[in-house]
Design a protein around this nucleic acid. Sequence first.
RNA 1: GCCUUCGUAGCUCAGUGGAUAGAGCACCGGCCUCCGAAGCCGGUGGCGCAGGUUCGAGUCCUGCCGAGGGCACCA
Length: 553
Amino acid sequence: MIRDEIQLLVAQAVEAAQAAGALPAFAAPEVHLEHPGRPEHGDYSANMPMRIQGLARMKAIEVAEALRAHVGTHPAVSEVRVAPPGFLNFYLDPTWVASQTEVIIAAGEGYASNTMGTGQKLQVEYVSANPTGPVHVGNGRGAAIGSTLANVLGAAGYKVEQEYYVNDAGTQIAVFTRTLYARYQQLFDRTVEIPENGYPGEYMVEIAQEIKDAEGDRYLRPEGEEPDPALGNEGISRMIAQIREDLGLLGVHYNRWFSERSLQEPGGAYETAMGILKSQGHVIEREGATWFASSQLGESKDNVLIRSDGQPTYFASDVAYHYDKFIGRGFNRVIDIWGADHQGHVSRVKAAVTAVGGNGDDLDVLLYQLVTLKRGDVVVPLSKRAGEIVTLRDVVSEVGADAARYFFLTPSAGSTMEFDLDLAKQQSDENPVFYVQYAHARIASVLARAAEQGSSSASADVSLLQHDAEQTLIRRLLLLPEVVELVVSSLETHHLPSYAASLSQSFHAFYTQCRVITEDAALTSARLRLLEATKLVLARTLGLMGISAPEQM
RNA sequence: GCCUUCGUAGCUCAGUGGAUAGAGCACCGGCCUCCGAAGCCGGUGGCGCAGGUUCGAGUCCUGCCGAGGGCACCA
């Protein structure tokens, strides 16, 4: 990548200047480059002179001059300038820039891929909402972030597995079963109330109806008796099928749906992990319960693993689950994506990973702030236990998967976001995602037109691409590898929509200023080549976000 | 009370410690006899408050104000 090469030029300039006595000897900090906000400041800017002015005991501007005198030559760099108060600005050679059009096309679908994660087995676990109800809008945010991150990490060479953790054990399943049974009995004209703290949503009635339609009265027991656990299992499996379908509508697909219950099988991860904790002295008995002695590991408090009634907690399952991820299945790295309401859970799970023989630092927990759902000015509650549930399916069918994904990905995970359903509906024509997709469709249209007219990009001389708008566009194309690297290192997916918008902007500006198909066969050919490269990069960017790149719209 | 995330344009949000803080929507004014006007060009308008660190702070630190989320033998 050109940025890395310029970084090296700067580092070497420091050494050369020191060797020549133009700078005193000292250990220089790592080179930091940035993209100046203004084109007249060049393509890459190094702030090295200002950062080492103290070490050099010279004025920054003098350091900059000394460095410039010792910067090596590079075919891509046409000029290096010093700018006050001490920047070292690098200007890319326009002909080199133009030539990159061919380099991008040659890279094809692998463009912007890298090897940051080569040889690493990585898991991304996300959404993992309780199977006691449909996935809602907030889950959609985690879904968009998780699947996009998986795509990008895959482009960085990681062997990525995507997983959904199904909480099919624990008390909420019992409550789910009792609620379902109440609804089921109601369908047989029994007068039964759904339990206190049950799930009042209409979807429970629908599931009960489906089960009745499919299996009749086989789950009906004499009045007053407890429900058949098999009814609960049947309901849960139907709920999971619906969740899988709803997420599929958003373009989210998993490699594995991991059952929490499976952890507790004899000889399974639960037994093994608890055994390790005990043998390592991380377990204490107190007040009739079994605790993870996490305060000994620097945590603010201990955490209950097994309640005094003998039931394991959700946390105990999570310890076993993460044991299975790292030790059982040997992932080198795991990324869990959780809603911000699980923030308090992060450090104890990391501590547990270390305690069962892994390394808590290999676990990244990405928290996204919750989504506030609104209809106009009215806030809509998301709770599964409230009356109105706005499901992910509702939203996707209203605004489409592409717009929904783009919308979810745009704000950084750390910012709360407002999802205005009324606005989202109106946005069908005005949504920013169409701006990006339109650029792609527009290119497809011009390429088709060129093909009809017999214009070809074969044997194009891309060095003709010297117009400002062409140069700006190609420079933008060259940024995608940097964006991918940034997303991988920061785990922040919101840089992608931001990049997509700026790339599209550059394309639309080019399109307005430069006519592609003209009488000038050589220039036409070169510009068609540029369109091909741009189309490829747009499709690549959209593909990473899981958004379609339409040929027409 | 403690922990944590956030506070940037009328609204929704970007902004890797740099040089004149951006985009979309909204609003105002221009641009199609020519490849898709779902577009382009221009304009109005902003860093919650106060200190500190730094050559340089929207960005880092502290305090205050305001908002969200945590602080269970719930998940």
